[in-house]
Nucleic acid binder design. Structure first.
Lengths: 219, 219
DNA sequence: GGCCGCAGAATATGATCAAATTATTTCCTG
DNA sequence: CAGGAAATAATTTGATCATATTCTGCGGCC
């Protein structure tokens, strides 16, 4: 039989499935509350059930999916308390990463971030919601990478997984306009090596983003 | 065939395996750097390999085990940078949980914590390393539970999983004596509802604990 | 020292069994 | 006789296992 590994540069199937699902969650292909079945994924992705099960376990462990007790898996629905917790955690961690990034990143790192941010602006300009979500995540992922703190980055990635689907809903309601953007301030701080300013701008960015989710919950 | 579920109150096998492994990691039955093989666990726990695989994926996702790339799994070995990151994350999160616990916990919650802390002291008195690790974790787990913040608690539990094996090594070197104890200050703060004091004492407790791990790395 | 084959371990599949939800039927009641 | 609730049957989904396949690492051989 043809091995799926040919598809994705030698990665094991469970890893491919994991990444595929992760992207689906991060970029809103799955709606909050939507049930996720193993057999459905087996048919949709045309792989065996073992890799699917492993990918799902992993995503559940990261909080990207929730196990409903009666052995049923769904995309998490955030309530106000969850958003508050996520905000607290993000505010506690992401400014720290921005601080470290400002201390460590060289010119080439900042340049790459500028490029990503430009693509982000382009996506906003076109009203491309998925593009916005992708590039926005990419921006933060690259910044976290610059910080050189793998454990903290892992934690933050897990947080993003938790609010990804809800973020998509927000963008579906409000579109990509009216997105106040702290990225420019972050970039300036990074280029001037101003760690405190980077942290401060990141905290604002985080709070603004979570504010939108919180507001969408009410409406 | 006899279903293993009978062993553990209706829990699925992969859940049982997960908890077993988690406790082994948290309480030092596995040493840092030690390789973990699937087949070894299959024989040791007398279960099929599917549940073992799922439990391992989950633990890897939580950072409790590391996937060495060449499809080999080991217990993580912490370096100085990892300890620094873990300290940063714990200091950022656990005092917040203590704060919330102080605001929410009633008399009965504080009493339960007192009881756990008493068992902890008893274990220290006997020089019972495993007992110390178990009760110390229990103390913090109960406190986090009191905070009523499931997401933050999840994150912190994941952090504990990462330094569990190394903590055991520390205790193996230094024994259970000379463990400066902020727990009494935390308990007092909880009982008087002093959130700020609870957070401060927790930060000290965290820093002291991580300091010990950090010191053991050098020696 | 590099290459080839062998052993062992991990990955992936399909089959099988168990559980839960859904649909259906039946029986009771108004 | 009609409507609804409870029980039951059927389908769908999840959990586990046994087995085949692939890959990695090691040791001998050229």
């Amino acid at each position: 039989m043809v091995n799926m590994r040919a598809d994705s540069a030698g990665l094991p199937t469970h890893e491919v499935v994991y990444r595929r699902l992760r992207d689906m969650i991060l970029f809103g292909e799955l709606a909050p509350g939507q049930p996720v079945t193993i057999q459905g994924l087996v048919e949709r992705l045309e792989v065996g059930m073992t890799p699917v099960r492993e990918a799902l376990r992993r995503l559940i462990a990261e909080g990207a999916l929730v196990f409903q007790g009666n052995r049923r898996i769904t995309v998490p629905v955030l309530d106000a308390a969850a958003v508050e917790e996520l905000t607290l955690a993000r505010v506690a961690l992401e400014p720290q990463l921005a601080r470290r990034a400002a201390e460590r990143c060289g010119a080439e790192g900042a340049a790459r971030l500028r490029a990503t941010d430009a693509r982000l602006d382009a996506a906003i300009g076109k009203g491309d919601v998925t593009g916005y979500l992708v590039e926005n995540h990419q921006f933060h992922a690259e910044l976290n990478d610059l910080a050189g703190a793998p454990i903290l980055t892992d934690l933050v990635e897990g947080l993003w997984l938790r609010f990804g689907p809800s973020l998509r809903v927000v963008c579906g309601q409000f579109g990509t306009r009216n997105l106040p953007d702290q990225h420019k301030a972050i970039l300036d701080a990074l280029e001037s090596g101003n760690a405190a300013a980077a942290a401060e701008a990141m905290e604002k960015d985080v709070r603004q983003g979570m504010e939108q989710i919180s507001a969408a919950l009410e409406g």
